[in-house]
Design a binder for these strands. Structure first.
Lengths: 224, 224
DNA sequence: GAAATTTTTTATGCAATTCGAAATGAAAAA
DNA sequence: TTTTTCATTTCGAATTGCATAAAAAATTTC
């Protein structure tokens, strides 16, 4: 099965070299030489893995990484300059899965790509379905069921529900919810969380809806 | 907070060097030069992280890694020989979290250790439940129980009770309580603290309420 | 590019909570 | 015993926080 890799690298020679090697290994490769363009590609399409240089024109690799992570789980390998240790660490914090340091041996890059693809595929089959009461979430299929009857949720509603189920019996503040589900960093004054709680409570059957409790002055909690 | 690292490395010089560097970074370090011994240590004790060389006498690093993973989640960083690409890949498959390649710059190793510890620590927000007598507070769930029966408190009442329980046997003045629980800086003349003490005493069972004593002329104290 | 859907913002009513003031009660000082 | 000081209790007005609806904006779908 052919894998599709996105390569964002502005140094033409390196890009060309890596692209050829990857194709030789039977990967399908898309190359971008620009940060902003690369980020758009990354968000618009579904790749199996992304290779992103940290130093890029217009938008740097770390920032691209963060933006992608808000939307996708696609594995990311960063390409950093030699000895940029700080970058390595912040790269992992930005959500990258691994990194290589320039100049790198192509075999090392290939080994890391294979390792990550293997790692990613393994636990994908291991995601245990979330289940509370008669409500099940099939995370792979992105579907929610109540007693075998599907409940249709929008993406945000779904994410919110998953977040609550993953943190049952823990009171979650609006700030935390905003940060984790919406990805906002800022403390914008908005009641969008309340509105979505409302949506969930309306769409879910009473039995489940009643588990989502309001903790006045603090936040919300799903009690089981 | 000091972290405990287990280092399994048979090359004496490297082991000594790494040990010194780690200690310099304020880690507590345990060293083993033998595969079998190292594995036993790893399984018998709780370390925060393990550094394991792949090439070891008696029992190799990959095998140690696999055995540990059957029992524990402790982060593992493998140390592999130069260009042993196969090992890198199989290392990740054996359950290692990361690896460094000999010869490595000590800063790189430190950076990886920090990155992993940081990653692992996130969800470690384990707040220990407060407990006095038969009264328990589940801070994550924001719930108060007396003998398994929930006591419903408003946010301020809850905050006040938590503050008292965190400072039991310490006399707290009204000013301090106002500042810590209400967040007032100003010394407004208000008896709001008194009023809330009253609320608590009324809602809590006699056995607990009687622990909140008045220290006339000074403030209040929760004696246990 | 129009229609439908989803997301975000804005507005409003309701209800729980908070707070301050005043009355009452209890302890210490005179 | 009386006076004074400090603590307790009660109660209602003001505030705050939440639920909900609906409009506006953004995004997706056809």
């Amino acid at each position: 099965m052919q894998r599709h890799i996105l390569l964002i690298e502005d140094e033409i020679n390196i890009a060309k070299f890596v692209e050829l090697e990857l194709k030789h290994e039977n990967f399908l490769v898309t190359v971008s030489h620009d940060g902003r363009e690369g980020a758009e590609l990354a968000l618009a399409n579904d790749y199996d893995l992304m290779l992103i240089d940290v130093m890029l024109p217009n938008l740097n690799g770390l920032e691209i990484c963060r933006r992608i992570r808000k939307k996708k789980e696609t594995p990311i390998i960063l390409i950093t300059a030699r000895d940029a240790i700080i970058d390595r660490v912040s790269g992992l914090e930005a959500g990258a899965d691994d990194y290589v340091v320039k100049p790198f041996a192509i075999e090392e890059l290939l080994a890391r790509i294979r390792a990550i693809l293997r790692r990613v595929e393994r636990p994908q089959t291991a995601i245990v379905d979330l289940k509370i009461n008669h409500l099940t979430i099939d995370q792979k299929a992105h579907q929610v069921f109540y007693l075998d009857k599907e409940i249709l949720l929008t993406k945000t509603e779904y994410d919110l529900l998953v977040y609550f189920m993953e943190n049952n019996n823990i009171v979650l503040t609006r700030d935390i919810i905003l940060e984790k589900v919406w990805g906002y960093e800022t403390e914008v004054e908005t009641n969008v969380v309340d509105v979505y709680i409302r949506h969930l409570r309306r769409k879910l059957p009473e039995e489940i809806a009643s588990l989502i409790e309001t903790v006045r002055g603090v936040g919300y909690v799903m009690r089981t």
